[in-house]
Amino acid sequence: MVEQRRRFSPQFKAEAVQMVIETGKPIADVARDLGVNHGTLGNWMKAWRHANPEPDPALSPVERARVSEMEAEIRRLRMENEFLKKAGGLLRQDAPVAERCAVIEVEKADYDVAWMCRLLRVPRSSFYAWRNRAETAGQARRRQLATEVGRVFGVGRGAYGCRRVTAQLNREGHECSVGLVADLMRELGLAAVQPRAYKRTTVRGQTPVDSPDLIARDFTTDGVPGQRLVGDMPPQTGGAPSYLRTGEGWLYLATVIDLATRMVVGWQMAEHMRTSLVVDALAMARDGGHVLAGAVFHSDRGAQYTSAEFHQYCQRIGVRTSIGRTGVCWDNAVAESFFSALKNEIFHHHRFTTRARARFAVADYIEVFYNRRRLHSSLGYRTPHEALNDHRTAAAAA
């Protein structure tokens, strides 16, 4: 079976370019995070730079020297910030010297020992005395595992509880139990972010186009990706639209999720809640090759999904619409679960002054974290991207 060439929507390309610009990471690193070829991302960057040329001011020798000093200072501060961020995920605020020494021991291959001792306020003599002390095999394993627990918790952006941390450690070859990991997380003061309660109210259109419920709460699938999809967009609570709050006003997100892989295969953001938002999200999934002919798309009875415009678009691309009951969130549980995770793991813990910053955070969460790093219990603690690759490998071997 010949693998279908990936296609990328303009939205995806723009967000990928924005990630390179905002993070300052090398193109190869961002390409790896997004699962695209680095040459492809490089071409997108060249096209953007060609369309947005920057002036090349002439600098005097004094100004060049000053710029070099500033760049050196920025590199130093970045390195300190990187190290302190790692240490912050492993250490409590009042961590004893032994725990700080353990962090230095783990990171000594990447950073200078004297430099780390200065940042963590540990005398070098104390570190070497701690390093040479007698330690039992059990204590050494527990110490090393605690470091790995802190690392995985940090990679999981604070969203992983003890079960997901345990699953990730076992995937990496660190055999451990949920109980041991729970104890270590408690000792390290690590706790996964907790969801907030919210009220869900679906608003129907005045003349809705009705569709049968083709999912019937069966969100499992043994089929290939692209056959069964679910979608959702911001709820309306108390009669007024409310979703992603920013300093410039509301921002709304529509998604398309593949039930076979739990991957967010289509998404769009806008300042409005018009039907075009959900049409654009489904179009992104179709343009990316994630929607097969005759696929089922399931949603709630929101006005956008029951509109004639959306129904006509689905008919045009050969997609069958499926709609759950009004006000019953369990009929669209997978989509609801994604929005709960998004709010719990990002928006309840950050403030965004502009819509642009919120867009960047959502793009990073979906494309880098949720689709490619976050372990899903419904997938046997695999990532959606791994599930998609497994399907493709099995299809190629058949």
Score class of each variant (00 low, 15 high):
Val2Lys: 15
Glu3Met: 15
Arg6Pro: 07
Arg7Asp: 08
Phe8Gln: 02
Phe8Ser: 05
Ser9Glu: 00
Phe12Lys: 00
Ala16Trp: 01
Val20Thr: 09
Gly24Thr: 06
Val30His: 03
Ala31Phe: 02
Arg32His: 11
Gly35Ala: 08
His38Ile: 04
Gly42Ser: 06
Lys46Ser: 12
Asn52Pro: 01
Asp56Val: 13
Leu59Thr: 03
Ala65Phe: 09
Val67Ser: 09
Met70Asn: 10
Glu71His: 12
Ile74Gln: 13
Glu80Ala: 14
Glu82Asp: 15
Leu91Ala: 04
Asp94Ser: 12
Cys101Asp: 02
Ala102Ile: 00
Ala102Pro: 01
Ala109Lys: 11
Asp112Glu: 13
Ala114Gly: 10
Ser125Val: 11
Ser126Glu: 11
Phe127Cys: 03
Tyr128Glu: 05
Arg131Trp: 08
Arg131Pro: 00
Asn132Pro: 02
Gly138Gln: 05
Gly138Ile: 00
Gln139Val: 04
Gln139Ala: 14
Ala140Pro: 01
Leu145Gly: 00
Val152Glu: 03
Tyr160Thr: 07
His174Asp: 04
Ser177Glu: 06
Met185Lys: 03
Met185Thr: 04
Glu187Ile: 06
Leu190Ser: 08
Ala192Met: 06
Thr201Cys: 15
Val209Asn: 04
Asp210His: 14
Leu214Met: 08
Arg217Met: 07
Gly223Asp: 13
Val224Lys: 12
Pro225Leu: 11
Gly226Gln: 06
Val230Glu: 02
Val230Asn: 00
Gly231Cys: 01
Pro234Met: 14
Gln236Pro: 00
Gly239Val: 14
Ser242Tyr: 12
Tyr243Arg: 07
Gly249Cys: 08
Ala254Asn: 06
Thr261Pro: 02
Ala270Gly: 11
Met273Asn: 10
Val278Gly: 04
Val278Trp: 05
Leu282His: 04
Gly289Arg: 15
Val291Ile: 09
His298Cys: 13
Arg301Lys: 15
Ala303Ile: 14
Ala303Pro: 11
Ala303Asn: 14
Thr306Ser: 11
His311Phe: 13
Cys314Ser: 08
Ile317His: 10
Ser322Asn: 11
Val334Ser: 06
Ala335Lys: 00
Glu336Val: 06
Ala341Gly: 06
Lys343Gly: 02
Glu345Asn: 04
Ile346Tyr: 00
Phe347Met: 07
Thr353Tyr: 07
Thr354Asp: 02
Val362Gly: 06
Tyr365Cys: 07
Ile366Phe: 06
Ile366Gln: 04
Glu367Gly: 03
Tyr370Glu: 09
Tyr370Ala: 09
Asn371Ile: 03
Asn371Asp: 07
Arg373Leu: 13
Tyr381Trp: 14
Tyr381Cys: 03
Tyr381Gln: 06
Arg382Asp: 10
Glu386Gly: 00
Asn389Ala: 15
His391Lys: 10
Ala398Ile: 15
Ala398His: 15
